[in-house]
């Protein structure tokens, strides 16, 4: 395996975390690829059209990448903030349908806006790193930061409020949790993370077009979370890493690889309905490693 595949896996893990955040308070949102595409377009446009961001045209400065990620995240977050209010009044499958529609609207917009390059998209995006290793290191830091924030949620009031809404929204509201606000925070955080990831991915993929944010991508990112488990942040991270790597790792089996890949996705939820990572399994693993002295 090489650094480029590792980078793909890390991007997959980040997107999985973006799907996990709304799920953490019980909201099934499939909007992640839409925000991912928006972030990517911000980076692609800035680094190909604005001289300061473009650097030499082949290599761009690192600060420009960071700035694009911040701007991509902010734009995605603002879109989420604007539409989050009405959309989050929907629940369950209706919310999922609304977010699919959002992805579709963004995709058609991206195809038809005068500056996004149509179906061809934007290409010749300059590189902030000479080799994939640079991306891996940078993304690893970003993923670690995202994981740390998710871990903090386990103890923060916000995180506990999210968990309470997931378990029973009515009960959560009755004990004084501001449920609309909490859900909106989760939705916006998810959008920001997807936007930031998109800005990074646009550079890594050299070219960016509307296919980045399609319905197919929505389902793929959802599969990461279903496969890995949605209760604890490690689940989506593991799901994102494994499911992105698997089609590539299965190359030696030749034509069967996609059949095998499909079987894994099918068998995963069948045998592990809660996903690969659950609190019980983590506890068991902790005991096995002799690292869990405290009682729960």
């Amino acid at each position: 395996m090489d650094a480029a595949l590792l980078e793909q896996m890390l991007l997959g893990a980040l997107l999985a975390l973006s799907v996990y955040l709304p799920l953490r308070c019980g909201q099934l949102s499939l909007a992640t690829p839409g925000f991912y595409a928006v972030g990517g377009y911000v980076a692609a446009l800035l680094s190909t059209r604005v001289a300061a961001f473009a650097g030499s045209g082949a290599t761009s400065p690192l600060w420009a990448l960071v700035a694009e990620m911040v701007l991509g995240g902010i734009l995605a977050g603002l879109i989420a903030l604007a539409i989050g209010g009405p959309v989050l009044q929907l629940r369950g499958i209706y919310l999922a349908i609304a977010t699919i529609a959002l992805v579709e609207i963004l995709r058609v917009l991206n195809l038809n806006l005068p500056f996004t390059g149509g179906a061809m998209g934007i290409f010749a995006i300059p590189q902030p790193f000479e080799q994939a290793d640079g991306y891996v290191l940078f993304t690893l830091v970003l993923l670690a930061l995202a994981c740390w924030l998710c871990q903090r949620l386990e103890v923060l009031r916000l995180g506990r409020a999210m968990a309470a809404i997931r378990d029973d929204e009515l009960a959560a509201a009755s004990v004084g949790i501001d449920t609309p606000r909490t859900k909106l925070i989760a939705f916006v955080a998810s959008a920001v993370l997807a936007g930031v990831t998109g800005a990074l991915a646009a550079h890594f993929l050299n070219a960016w077009n509307a296919r980045a944010g399609s319905f197919d991508a929505s389902i793929t990112t959802l599969a990461f979370v279903v496969f890995g488990g949605s209760r604890y942040w490690l689940g989506p991270v593991l799901g994102g890493l494994v499911l992105t790597a698997l089609p590539e790792l299965l190359r030696p089996v030749g034509d069967l690889r996609l059949i095998l890949f499909g079987s894994v996705i099918l068998l995963g939820p069948l045998f592990f309905p809660q996903g690969l990572v659950t609190a019980e399994r983590l506890r068991g693993l902790g005991a096995l490693l002799g690292r869990a002295p405290q009682a729960p």
Partner: peptide
């Protein structure tokens, strides 16, 4: 298990995955 314990196991698993991934 405490949050700290979970965190340690989580970080450990993540590192392990990445190490397994390796580099060419």
């Amino acid at each position: 298990m405490s949050v700290g314990g979970l965190q340690r196991v989580g970080t450990g698993l993540l590192t392990l995955t990445l190490l397994l991934a390796g580099c060419a």
